[in-house]
Design a protein around this nucleic acid. Sequence first.
RNA 1: GCGAGCGUGGCGGAAUGGUAGACGCACUGGACUUAAAAUCCAGAGUCCGAUAAGGACGUGGGGGUUCAAGUCCCCCCGCUCGUACCA
Length: 840
Amino acid sequence: MKYNPSLIEKKWQRKWSELEIFKAEIDHTKTKYYVLEMFPYPSGAIHMGHVRNYTLGDLIARYKKAKGFNVLHPMGWDAFGLPAENAAIENKTHPSKWTDSNIESMKIQLKQMGLSYDWDRELKTCDPDYYKFEQKMFLDFYKAGIAYKKETLVNWDPIENTVLANEQVVDGRGWRSGAEVEKKKMKGWFLKISDFADDLLNEIDNLVEWPEKVKTMQRNWIGKSFGATIQFSIKNSSEKIEVFTTRPDTIFGATFIAISPQHPFAKKIAKKDTEVSNFIKFCDKNSIKEADIEKAEKYGYQTNFSVSHPFKKNLSLKIFIANFILMEYGTGAIFGCPAHDQRDYDFAVKYSIDIIPVIKTKEKLPYTGDGIHINSEFLNHLNIEDAKRLCIEKLNNLKIGKEKVTYRIRDWGVSRQRYWGCPIPIIFCNECGEVPVPREQLPITLPEDINFNNKGNPLEYHPTWKHVKCPVCKKNATRETDTFDTFFESSWYFARFTDLNSSNAFTDEAIKYWLPVDQYIGGVEHAVMHLLYSRFFMRALKYLDCINIEEPFTSLQTQGMVCHRTFKNNKDQWVFPTEIEKKGNKFIHIDTKETIFAGRTEKMSKSKKNVVDPQQIIENYGADTARFFILSDSPPDRDMEWSESGVEGSWRFLNKLWKFVNNLPNHKTCNELPAKLTERNRALLTIMNTTISDVTKSIDDFHFNIAVASIRSLFNSLSAFKIENDNDTKVIIYVIKNLLILINPMTPHLAEELWNYLGNKNTISRENWPKVDLKYITKKNIKIPVQVNGKVRAVIEVPMNLSEKEIELIARKEQNVLKFLNPNPKKVIVIPNRIVNFVI
RNA sequence: GCGAGCGUGGCGGAAUGGUAGACGCACUGGACUUAAAAUCCAGAGUCCGAUAAGGACGUGGGGGUUCAAGUCCCCCCGCUCGUACCA
């Protein structure tokens, strides 16, 4: 029989579902293992990034199950968000309908991949049964002071009269209107993640199974820095400007003050000075993106005001308003020390400001390293650390400054001026102010009749939805029309998966048993925000006594992107790989026959047309081939290149395996190893046991491509083995059964089918992972290289654990070594079982 | 701009500081076939050498530590991710 994936894959998917093999239930006799992949946004069709992510997770889930764990492996939909509203505007479909039909088609695709999800736990975040809990959480946060309202800057499109997401700002202009975007102040809801900053930072050290790079990024994002605030008195005024600095030691190098355009003092003087207000307006152009602000040319406006130096009263420093000073960081004001800070230096050169070095150095300015202070009165001769300490002490004594710890992280703004999100349960009343929606009125659901033709937030324009009576005074009032940031939903979905039917957000028993997630897998693009918000959320909920965990994810793996070659025609237009055929070394267009040029390999994107549709791959080769190729190509955390020939290679291998098993003689009768083994049998069992050991280790290390390579090697040895008698057959079948269990997490349908073919009544999904039999893999001899001056000149085979002296003697006898050993080596390095190196 | 990561044959990639290139793809030769495809067997980093023995070079570039560096340290280049309202 030929290998026909479409037939066997459907068959086994149905069996798994009938047998409820992947249904997860609390079982206190077993150790639990919770595997989770980042749930997808239901965009309409799965892409290779999804295929990769979910294949990785499925391998772990099936592997851990075979290892005896009680595995929870759920899947759901991150269903709120901007694309649904864009689709509503463009195609006139309701976001809810659009989302649901997308979920439906993506679910079919995921099922075709044969992923071991417990589909009974499927959730979608746009379901009121999901988001109603968020409204309760928000009210708890509000009551506890974790949620609060404040003013913030947003991107404002003056033509569309709407707030734009950063993504919707392209080169400083609105993506639809093309209007120059302005910064606008607006009130919004915030969560006090800053209150948890220290704990979030400190506990990073305990996330031992997280990638170091993610931890570093989170540490830097939180950005705890020790410094000082210093008050500068404004000349001819009773007012003061407070600055924050991480380098109080450079105070004697201060030659100017710079404040944010949003700083209260800047606004105050703008009222009387049109030049200042014009400059502030100028700064308000451009988006709120940090990268845009930082990359924009740095401008300063020199005001007519100056401050006096705190320690040198006769020295005065001009106050500048500068577009690169962020109001959100520190105090929104700095002192500039051009000699020891690159940005201050550039600014000083541009505006001809004095540069006073205060640290002795021979290097050119600006110099940011350590050294002895000069030109600094009482700080002279001190290094940075001591000077910092002494300066802060003096500031304290004079009551003009103090030590200050600052964080880069800002509170989490959760308000979005959009329809397709979870409504925020607050009512605004002219008499009573902000009033929380009474609990018994929850959930506040979205109105279904909604019009996207108006500018701005559709909820604002709904004729009735926002008009309510104040719960306190019963007078006319209005609802909050902002909805939540979709990171709100993804900050706790992993907890909801533990018990989808609970009438509360969670049940204690399920939380206690299943959480935390043992293995979380997703794209590195979520390294900071989603993962940090989730960590914060658990802490906030714990603070409210809702949950008893802090860290949601014990182990984290981040996967790289799926890339593909790009192709262009001679008109510089992108061409789909499916439109191309290879002729020799050249590519030509299948229809037009024009020459096509291959470009760089880049991340798959629709705009560059270098996409491969998983659906096509599954239809042509089956899910197992797609899965096997994805696992074999690259280690998960690196970018991988999707290549047609690589897929072909995987397809060929699975076919070889299929044929090999189907050609085995007397396969249904033998189940055990024969009593007597030949040398050849033992050699094969040695390879098998080595493979079991290697595959196990590679999977534990998340090096799935090496696990695949080991399995292929084992198979190569199997096919090279000549069957001479019945005993040989028994050995072969014994080995192939083990191989099937090893490959099952990768290609589960094929493994099941062949397992069944070999006469096994049980499903392979319930088989135990094979154990290594040490008696086959203890080595007697070992080959070690012999080097002369670090270059390999020979390889010798010696008994394991031979003494250094004996190894050296054997090494010296090698012809190709001997000729270098005159005169005698200066030094001989022998590392038993490793290497010999003669240094001459 | 800032933060983080990555860079190894023609290609994807292997390698506790200890034989660089496992495994695969592409390629070349052979077997089978009327022929092709498929399949099977063999070869192979580059250069010198004879297709051998043997040798030189070789992990983005430059420098350093070490008996020994793809791996550790410093500088540079290139690419990728994130940068707080995309998810």
